[in-house]
Design a protein around this nucleic acid. Sequence first.
DNA 1: TATATTTGCTTAATCGATTAAGCAAATATA
DNA 2: TATATTTGCTTAATCGATTAAGCAAATATA
Lengths: 339, 339
Amino acid sequence: MANKKRATLKDIANVLNISPAAVSKAMHDDSRISDKTKKAVKRVAKELDYQPNHLASALRNGKSNLVGVIVPRTNSNFFSSVLENMEAVLNKASYNIIITQSNESFEKECKNIDTLLFTQVDGIIASMANETVDLSHYEKVKSNGIPLILFDRGENDLNVDYVGINDYDSSHVIVEHLVEKGCKRIAHIGGYRRTRIFNNRIKGYVDALKKNELPIDDSLIVESALTLEDGRLEMENLLRLEHRPDAVYVASDYAALGALQVLNEQDIKVPDDIRLVGFGNEPFTSLVTPSITSIEQHSKEIGRLAAETFLKHIAQPELKQTLNKIILDAELIIRDSSR
Amino acid sequence: MANKKRATLKDIANVLNISPAAVSKAMHDDSRISDKTKKAVKRVAKELDYQPNHLASALRNGKSNLVGVIVPRTNSNFFSSVLENMEAVLNKASYNIIITQSNESFEKECKNIDTLLFTQVDGIIASMANETVDLSHYEKVKSNGIPLILFDRGENDLNVDYVGINDYDSSHVIVEHLVEKGCKRIAHIGGYRRTRIFNNRIKGYVDALKKNELPIDDSLIVESALTLEDGRLEMENLLRLEHRPDAVYVASDYAALGALQVLNEQDIKVPDDIRLVGFGNEPFTSLVTPSITSIEQHSKEIGRLAAETFLKHIAQPELKQTLNKIILDAELIIRDSSR
DNA sequence: TATATTTGCTTAATCGATTAAGCAAATATA
DNA sequence: TATATTTGCTTAATCGATTAAGCAAATATA
């Protein structure tokens, strides 16, 4: 590999017999540089295939034009779609993104933050891992002085911007829909209460039951990590109850899929015997049999808004970080599993 | 936001009344620095919450300890798993990864490469977008002198390291399996021939048919982008044929899922009427009804090997980039759709 | 005791790009 | 014509971390 040295401003300067400072200004179209010089500089830059050294300019300017993103996993359509739209907005503003995965692990999330700070990102946009309870690593980001924006999985205690959907209301919409279909014993396979969004979904579920004058039965409310396997397990548990539910609201599509598998395996008719509702509107919800009713989380919007919030902070550095929530209305997509 | 200035080596030096050079050496446990000074430096570093400025050291050392990764999309389990294992290996060698998505777009892939080179990554590990035919942007990486490693979707013409599975053999394994089950008219919903792996799958399919003395029927071979929607479309087309196939080998699980939906909708019994085989062993293949026979691509191994190949190039910079293929044997996971 | 070696630091330069300050030549204004 | 302003560049310092070169003091060796 002919380790060709990259051309530098100095190389261009040498060719033209001017100072590197003049070259730098010419490249930035400084008004104090003559058109003749600008043209010459740009011509030579092209000839030498000059690529500015990002490290040098970032060091000098104190900003890297990189935004760090932390997601629990990239392999869900939700996060993938959020990332895609976030990137589009940031690219337009000449920022690039560095994606890291926490794999739902607290330890990994801490490492991710260290990596991103180490890389001198200009800001961090994150969705918290399932395991995360201690927030000190996020405090570190804040005290570093760079904007921190949370989406989907956030925490009020951090007092930073947050973009997400209305989880509490979503639960209401789901329960109302199931009640309308005549369900009386609605179970909830939820996430862990320590995660704010899952806590809100549980609260919304409980309040919606109360509103509809249905009894709250603790045996019908379970918490889990909401993997497909968890969905299977909890569904099996629910079916073992003396008094089975006639509907199950699962706080994640993956877990809902697990639940559906168990129901299918045990020849329990969905929606006739038990109605099923998921959360997230992952593409597979419309592909399985029966298709699963779910909540659309507006991933595109979330990505866009999170990116724009970051840009707002960059544009107005005097803006203090405070709890500023952008809450989107979720949308219930009704499919065969609850029809 | 109290834009606290980060502590620098100079700050530590000032506290201890020694030179920044001594501090730098102390932090790196240089043998020419006394234990007393080292301890003092580390104590003050901790007190001031010193974080080395990555940009400065990267600029000085000429390496960023960042590896750029390009994947078509992160939302498949295959790529997500490759990334996870790649990251684990690289992190251990104190490299961090920057993940970018091409969204299967050639244009986006070019941009990704520009971004990564701009960020001064020490190497690029990539899987090519569906659209990519022109390879000049990859040549740019090569001429930049940093290692380029391809995985899954690669090209011989680039003459760089490649890690992937044996696509040609995989097709043979699939065809053999279907023939064993008594199939005589095996269709293939493949990817575009311009992508090497898909071309190899098609070639393998054709050769395996020949080997089993089955006729090659061009109406049974179709090329597509292999999305779920493509799978639906092509399956519908195949069913409209006068002489229907008795088995379909789809070169991607997503497209296979689409095909299965159509078969289910039209009440065609799988596997009795038509046998179905996918490719990739995505988790959902075991979840749908009937479960889909598929090829396991050893994503973990691919991630690990790609990372190790990169590290090998870093360890031996004199190593020339040549076409060096690491080909893994794929594994057929037989499920209900072909049983 | 005289010289050689080792220890423990400092000095100064460097990685590239950028910018404030400054200077000479060209041009504009009085 | 004399002064003021503008133009078009250069000089030098800077962003932090690192390292080759060097120097004085401490220690080892002859």
